[in-house]
Design a protein around this nucleic acid. Structure first.
Lengths: 190, 190, 190, 190
DNA sequence: TGTTAAGCGAGACGGTACGTCGCGTCTTAAT
DNA sequence: ATTAAGACGCGACGTACCGTCTCGCTTAACA
């Protein structure tokens, strides 16, 4: 008989959440901040989501962008394409901070941990694909795909987060060479 | 002329911080909680640390024993020792969370960025040493040390943070094998 | 559209304020003391009053008690009745202290000064009435009423505040005699 | 052997106290404010005065010149001289406030009560003298001196504290006339 | 098609923690 | 042994959000 939870309110709250994360980082995120920014009442937010984290999860969920696996014909080309696109994300400080905020928040919230997994796998799947194709082509010896992913993303992450800055574009070739050697490619061919 | 910041107060606050993390997790951590638990006044805490995060970082810092570079005679042995000890830290969710908090906070605070650098280099220096020795011994071709560090820590970080759990101890050998191959070691082990 | 500031919360805070003033004097008065005593949250108090003084003013305002002018037929009788009742207030150390606290606080807060005026005039009006009746009856020569008030309250105040103790009941007749003589009554007649 | 409590420090603190009262009013007065303004250390202030109130009282004391009993030859002249000088003190809001603070503090602190008594008697003694001389001269009938004091100070106090402002200089003659009549002077003046 | 229950904005409520200020006590070094 | 300097435990300050609640207004689905 009554009207259902309105989709407009939901969308406004989610948009505001995302806008806040981009502008102020996770520290600026609070139910009341969303209220202020979106014009959606606190009551309404609690009617849609039972906690701030759930709203966060939902907002991030809505913004997962699917990255297709490149297929250039060689592991080297595919890796180059893949890491280049990953670097674009990392090079943007706002996005970098959002990722870190998510990682740290997820460390103490199993619910966020799951949404993190979903976001991460969106990025890891293409790598799995790339590596599997390379194995089929005989470019590299068989390898457990998850381990390969670790090997591709790891150096990028370490570089970005520990050193504070992502690698520059001209450092990429050297990194890829090391990665390929680690994966067992015969010759990274120059 | 006045008395210096007292070491006892500092220690009591740090101990209380750790006790809280152990008993209630990071959610139970607050300046006032530390005050209640330690008997150290809030004002005093603020005299020692300008923010809750700094106290957290300091507590972390105090409880992470500086690991000297192992010297087992071979790159493989050194890496095993090094990564094993790194894993111990990563396996503790509280420390993992603190590291992530530090990384994300540092992303938007230059002051924290420096503290982070200090903590990170505490961990990277031993690796630089290990790698340099391996190069001297001719085990691996010459390599820019920072890049090598990236290659050792990266997979561990990716594993821990992206997948949510650090690698188990029996996965270590395989990871090390990949890392060594990436660094160009002739044959990881016979 | 939201619910209005609740009258219950307001009343509870005001009552607690008054209770504190009576029990501990103005030094015991603080927002947090009111919070503790009333069960009304600090935030709520700040929603109702923008400062501690405003609450104080409001609380005192609510407790102004109207004293009716006695009418015994003679100035001597009226004065006796009036000063006796005034003495009752002064004899209570808690009320005495409250009055002094109010006087001194009002000396640097125009807002409190006004509420003080209201409280004072509640006590002065009856005296004005008494004196005016005495003038009409020809008991005393015409006099500016405010000056007469000064003359009745003054000695009582000086006695109470400077000497530290209010006059005893058996000193009253002599004081009244002096007052009447000052006002110009032919003979205080015994 | 040790040096005694230094008079310079004492003076600097008292001067700073007065400067603060002048610049920021009594609300700006605090031990730490005096410390900041005078350069005299907190320790030193507590060595000289056991509380902020005592410092305040002392500062007041130092800046109130002891007024000797005037001797003009007539009660009327003496009273005029006496009340005029009392009015000067009362006209200064800072001193007025300080007097009230002292009175209210004394109401619940026996130690302060004594200090108050000392300050008060500094002002009452001259009046006692004046009145005794008037009795000797036969100007007024014998009277208990304390009661006379009450009668001189009372109207001034009531005027100043209840009405909020001290009487103006041109109101004084009328007040004195009333006081003299109350004391039983045959004819205040012809 | 008019009724009506639920959604909605607004925001008051009792709370917890924040980071700051001043208190009065204390410790230290320097004169 | 007094002083300037200031750290200490303490407690109140005023603010920000929390999650719950009450309020009228609005609106979509059912009768």
């Amino acid at each position: 008989m009554p009207r259902p939870l309105s989709e407009t309110a939901r969308q406004k709250a989610i948009d505001a959440t995302f806008a806040i994360l981009g502008d102020e980082g996770i520290d600026g995120f609070s139910i009341e901040a969303v209220t202020r920014r979106s014009g959606v009442a606190k009551t309404t937010i609690y009617r849609h989501w039972s906690s701030a984290n759930e709203l966060l999860v939902d907002a991030l969920d809505c913004h997962i962008e699917t990255v297709p696996a490149p297929d250039t014909g060689s592991l080297h080309g595919d890796l180059t394409a893949m890491t280049t696109s990953a670097l674009e994300v990392m090079a943007d400080p706002a996005r970098r901070r959002m990722l870190l905020d998510l990682l740290s928040a997820a460390a103490s919230d199993p619910e966020l941990e799951q949404i993190k997994q979903a976001l991460v796998s969106e990025r890891t799947h293409p790598i799995v694909e790339i590596v599997e194709r390379a194995v089929e082509r005989g470019e590299i010896p068989p390898i457990e795909p998850e381990r390969a992913v670790t090997f591709v993303h790891g150096p990028l992450m370490a570089r970005t987060m520990l050193q504070g800055e992502p690698p520059t574009t001209d450092e990429l070739p050297e990194l890829i060479e090391l990665i390929m050697r680690g994966l067992g490619a015969e010759r990274p061919d120059t």
